[in-house]
């Protein structure tokens, strides 16, 4: 069904929220609160990390692990509850946070869809409507083909694509113009393939890998981790990943990067935390410090290993700049991909 639903509000959130007086009063008495005096701000109620997706996905895992880390490492005094706000590829969660303007106790996890979905006109809120706090990790895209496919590296594939793009079907989870599509187009374009000629099919019902294996699709554009099990089983091979350098880890260290194949382009699936609009400098500084501490902790190191994430910390200012650049390059790509007729 469309709205796969999962509002898993962790039990203790509701209790903690309730303990705080459960409602509007305490939520609105926020911002100025402790910011008086020496310019130090501290949260005065329990925090809420919003994953704008269902339980179990990348955003959700990041939010939950961060919450667990803050608690385990005693970095923050306040309790943290993780809340799932699913829908619209994130749009539902974003509009929820936008409605929490000036209440810095609600943060959310985001990644490139925060840029792409608004650019595709599917959300009225974009990254500029929120306060970037810190980027925590990065992930990369992978392009996989069947083990018996005629291509052995990305250049083989792109050469064939230049000649007859209509013969090669690229499949991905997200809709056209969103992440799986754009990461492929970005690399292919650098290799000289016309972005518009890429034949991309979106399969949002979990049938992407099936369609690669049964030959309905030729190339699968996805995240690195999604490919690992099938590579180990010898069913598929990964022609290239979008990282700058080789990844570390058991299977993934064998995946060649696009860069080392002479295609000078990367795609970062960054993931970090954002706050509602209108946060003060003191509030940003507070969170930056806390997230930096988490990032440097052993706990986070283990977490990165466990989920095969890579380290990519950015503070609020760097993050904002990075996002501007990213958005610009996405916009360019989208303009080339989505050509309206007439």
């Amino acid at each position: 069904m469309k709205k796969i639903w999962l509002p898993t509000l962790a039990l203790f959130t509701s209790i903690t929220l309730a303990a705080c007086g459960g409602g509007e009063d305490s939520e609105n008495s926020n911002a100025e609160g402790n910011s008086s005096g020496d310019g130090n701000w501290e949260p005065e109620q329990s925090l809420e990390f919003v994953a704008p997706s269902g339980a179990g996905g990348g955003w959700d895992t990041t939010a939950r692990m961060a919450a667990e880390g803050f608690e385990e490492q005693d970095i923050m005094d306040q309790g943290i509850g993780v809340v799932n706000k699913e829908g619209g590829g994130g749009a539902v969660g974003w509009s929820y946070i936008a409605g929490k303007a000036e209440n810095p106790h609600h943060l959310f996890v985001a990644s490139p869809p925060l840029l792409l979905i608004p650019l595709n006109g599917q959300s009225e809120y974009g990254h500029e409507d929120f306060t970037p706090i810190a980027n925590m990790i990065s992930d990369y895209g992978a392009f996989a083909v069947r083990e018996d496919a005629p291509w052995d590296d990305l250049n083989d594939l792109f050469e064939d694509m230049k000649d007859s793009p209509e013969d090669i079907t690229v499949i991905g989870e997200s809709s056209p113009g969103s992440m799986d599509h754009i990461q492929f187009v970005k690399i292919a374009k650098e290799a000289g393939v016309d972005p518009q000629s890429v034949k991309y099919v979106s399969a949002q019902d979990g049938s992407t890998m099936t369609n690669l294996l049964n030959g309905n699709a030729d190339v699968y554009s996805t995240g690195v981790t999604e490919t690992v099990e099938q590579v180990r089983a010898g069913e598929i091979k990964v022609l290239g990943v979008t990282a700058e350098e080789r990844l570390e880890g058991d299977v993934v260290e064998d995946f060649p990067t696009a860069t080392e194949q002479g295609i000078d382009e990367t795609f970062v699936n960054w993931r970090g935390f954002f706050g509602p609009p209108g946060m003060t400098d003191e509030q940003i500084t507070y969170y930056e410090e806390k997230f930096k501490e988490l990032n440097d902790s052993e706990f986070w190191d283990e977490t990165r290993d466990k989920y095969a994430w890579n380290e990519l910390y950015m503070d609020s200012e760097e993050y904002a700049e990075f996002l501007e650049d990213e958005k610009e390059s996405m916009q360019e790509l989208l303009d080339e991909v989505n050509v309206e007729e007439e």
Binding site: P7, L11, S14, A18
Partner: peptide, 16 residues
């Protein structure tokens, strides 16, 4: 819903 299932229904003006 709220205790066992972890789904919060609107609490409204009743304070719990």
């Amino acid at each position: 819903f709220t205790m066992l299932l972890g789904i919060s229904l609107p609490s409204g003006i009743i304070p719990f």
